[in-house]
């Protein structure tokens, strides 16, 4: 379909043009779904409200159920509000052997949240996460897009305190 013939969807223009840019590199519209959801999630503040999911479905001309199926399958797509910062603490084996569970405890304790909760000021949400592929830095956690390794409970607390 020619770009000019595409009807307006609920997606903002910058997201639409980012998707359009990718279109020539893939043989199907459906293959744009994961990239489109990444773009949309960034635009909507780190999660995918219903309007975002429906807009992506409309943009790619996919049934909404297909898009929901994909959103619920992947750990990095969220259907509920998240904090301004997302903290993912690895507790898989290599981190667990080096105190990963104590890091999780320290971070959750400092922010006063439990699994999947957002701190009262909306600043952070914390989740226990599977191996992030940085076991040489164990124990480690991911804050937004950055890895922080060789943590102690003290350092982990300081890292989340210093987030704005």
């Amino acid at each position: 379909m020619a770009e000019s013939a595409r009807r307006a969807t609920g997606l903002p223009e910058d997201v639409r043009s980012a998707i359009a840019e990718l279109r020539k590199h893939y043989p199907t519209e459906e293959a744009l779904l994961l990239p489109a959801l990444h773009f949309a999630q960034k635009h909507w503040g780190g999660w995918l409200p219903e309007e975002a999911i429906l807009a992506v479905a409309q943009e790619l001309q996919l049934p909404a159920a297909r898009v929901y199926g994909v959103v619920t399958f992947y750990d990095l797509f969220h259907q509920n509000p998240v904090g301004r910062h997302r903290v993912r603490v690895c507790t898989n084996l290599s981190c667990a052997l080096r105190g990963g569970n104590e890091i999780l405890e320290a971070v959750q304790g400092r922010l006063g949240v439990r699994e999947n909760e957002v701190s009262g000021d909306g600043k952070c949400s914390v989740v226990e996460f599977e191996c992030l592929g940085a076991c040489e830095q164990a124990p480690m956690m991911m804050v937004d897009d950055e890895y922080h390794g060789r943590l102690t409970p003290e350092r982990a607390r300081r890292i989340v305190e210093e987030l704005d």
């Binding site: 898989n92 084996l93 290599s94 599977e130 191996c131 592929g133 940085a134 076991c135």
Partner: peptide
């Protein structure tokens, strides 16, 4: 897609 727990060589 390096996700096997303990693996970080591809990174």
């Amino acid at each position: 897609d390096e996700s096997e727990p303990g693996t970080f060589k591809d990174r």
